[in-house]
């Protein structure tokens, strides 16, 4: 799909990180950024009127964590094709494997490098 006019769902409980990720996403022309503070909030946004082209989610969040969100999205027939990127402080190899096994398309450890994030998103959207 085109990299322009993509709709992103940023799921992060930290306002600082939400803003930082959103700031990086503004590099995509016409990008629309929808923010959610946890997994439950993300599911609400996913069932809303906006088409979501890519989800970026943290793991450690209150109410519902990112891994549960990934798992639920992959079980939903309408949502399962949406690419998901996990962005987290959990940098251990087993955490990465668990995230990818649940169905995430990419796993990025914090602190994030904006250029790396942009490249990962571009590759996923181009392949979608």
């Amino acid at each position: 799909m085109s990299l322009d006019n993509a709709n992103f769902l940023v799921v992060e409980d930290s306002p600082t990180m939400r803003q930082l990720i959103s700031f990086s996403l503004k590099r995509f022309k016409g990008a629309k950024i929808i923010e959610a503070v946890d997994g439950v909030d993300a599911l609400k946004k996913l069932s809303g009127p906006d088409r979501i082209d890519l989800i970026l989610t943290d793991i450690n969040m209150p109410v519902m964590d990112g891994l549960k969100l990934v798992s639920l999205v992959r079980q939903n027939a309408q949502l399962k094709a949406i690419p998901i990127i996990i962005i987290t402080t959990e940098g251990a190899e087993e955490d990465r494997e668990r995230g990818l096994a649940l169905g995430a398309n990419a796993y990025i450890s914090k602190p994030i490098q904006s250029s790396h994030l942009i490249k990962t998103i571009s590759d996923l959207l181009a392949a979608a």
């Binding site: 600082t16 990180m17 914090k110």
Partner: peptide, 25 residues
């Protein structure tokens, strides 16, 4: 931007913590 977005002491400290975890690593 985040640090100067509030005058609530607890909130500022929380933001400093977030920055140290997420940006400094």
């Amino acid at each position: 931007y985040q640090l100067h977005s509030t005058l609530d002491f607890k909130e500022v400290v929380q933001i400093v913590q977030e920055i140290i975890i997420n940006l400094v690593g």
